[in-house]
Structures are given as C-alpha cells and as structure tokens.
Design a protein around this nucleic acid. Structure first.
Lengths: 123, 123
DNA sequence: GCAATATTTCAACGGCTCTTGAATAATCAT
DNA sequence: ATGATTATTCAAGAGCCGTTGAAATATTGC
C-alpha cells in the first residue's frame, strides 16, 4: 500500500457526511445501498451526495455497480482494512497501546521496532 | 469519543508531512523528539513544521513539553488508538475483514451488527 | 420517440488549508 | 542587559474543498 493511497483514504474519511455514509453502508453489509436511499437516509441533495460518493470512490473506499437507473454502493472492506493496517504498522510501529485500544483488547501485542536512533534534542 | 474529535484526528493525519511526523515520533517511542530535530529530519522550515505540529496538537494526537528552549513532542497513543477504535467499531461495525486486515491476522473476529434494515433500492 | 426517474456533471462562490518569509516570544549564556 | 538559539505567530497569497442549483446523461416504460 502506497502512502498516497492512504492519504487519499484518510482525506475522504475526514468529513462528517462521508463518515456517515461509511457508517450507513457498513450497517448494510454486502447488500450495500443505492444513491437515492443514501440521500434519503442522510437528508442530502442528490448533487451533494454524488460529490461525496465520488470522493469515497476515488479513494477506493467504496465500490459501485449500476442496477438499472440506480447506482448501488458498497463498502470496500479490503481497502479500509489496508488503510488502517498501514497507519497502525507503518506509521505507529504497531504500538501495543494503540493496537490494544483499537481492538478492544484480547489480542497479543505485536513486537515493536524502536530502531536504535539516539538523536536526542539538539542533534 | 465524539465524532468531531475523530474527524479532527483524521483531518490531521490526512497530510503527507503530518503522517511523516507521526511516523518519526512513533519510531522514537516515549522519548519523543524536539521540534528542531523533527525539522532537521524531515527537511522542513521551522514555520512549516510548527504549523503542522500545531495541527497534530489541536487534534490531540501529540503531547508537548517544554525543555529549556526546546519543545519536546511525543505521540499520544491513547488518542490514536481511540480514533481507530471509533472508526473500526462505530463506523465499520467491526467487520471481520477490516479487522483481519488491520491486525495482520491472529485475532478473533468480533460479532457484527447488521441491524435488520430491509431498505432495498427505491425505498 | 417521449416523458419520467435516478444520478452525475458543471459553474460559481465562499471558506478553509497550506506555504513562505518576516516578526515576535521564550530561554539560555555571558 | 545583550546576543544567540529555539520555536511560535502573523500576514499575504495560491489553491483546494464543499455547497448550491441548473444542466446533462443514462435508463426504463409507454
């Protein structure tokens, strides 16, 4: 996973409406939901919704399929997992406290890196 | 954890430079790093760095302590974990595939919600 | 072909984000 | 106090993000 992809996904998630869309799609499981249904559920204009869905789509966080005149959106679980995997391991060194919190416990902490840099303050 | 806090954190993370800062601070563990050291490591101007550190700080992702003329920054592991916990559980229903990917395997999948909404397409 | 439905695209506007360099603040050493 | 060092704040400008409503596209059914 390249960092640019992760940044695109984080940007896409970092918006109230889009996080609501993700939440809604997640609650629908593999069934997904069509644009009109999402708009009705969240009280969005068609145009505004389309804008946000397009953001989620270009970040790879959702998948789209045409069904007649409707467009059905589903969450892309693989991409979401990949993004979190990247941040947790590549950016946070699998720190036990972070892992512990975001897993709600019950998971063996992964080994940490702490590559022997000795740079204190003034360098 | 309120959604507004999560959105602030995601926005803060969704920037190349700031993700690099997080990665660097993570590699330093509890020792953290002072602003000057970070700037030198990442080749940033003092002003640019301060801008990004302030963004991370107001999102609660780092903690700061003065040490003489230096400001030492450390990662806030609790907040990072809380943010991911929120997205994974509150927004993604602890979906097994997402959890599985971001854990690199080795964790029992959590139960899922799928609250019985039956809204198909045209609603 | 024509009207109706579902969705996306376009254009315009306001606001926020990011960058840059100069100015300011805080601390230390003499 | 003075000067050096470290870091933050300020101001200006470029550019991206998000909202809105109108227009365009795609599909269905008559």
């Amino acid at each position: 996973m390249e960092q640019s992809r992760v940044l695109a996904a984080l940007s896409a998630l970092a918006h109230d409406t889009r996080l609501e869309i993700v939440r809604l799609l997640s609650s629908r499981g593999g069934e997904g939901m069509c644009a009109g249904g999402i708009a009705r559920h969240l009280g969005l204009s068609a145009s505004a919704l389309s804008f946000h869905l397009s953001a989620l789509d270009s970040a790879g966080l959702v998948q789209v399929n045409r069904e007649g005149r409707n467009m059905r959106y589903r969450l892309n679980h693989a991409e979401l997992g990949g993004v979190f995997a990247y941040v947790l391991s590549d950016c946070c060194g699998n720190h036990p406290e972070i892992r512990g919190r975001c897993l709600g416990g019950g998971c063996e902490p992964a080994p940490q890196d702490h590559s022997g840099m000795s740079n204190t303050c003034p360098g």
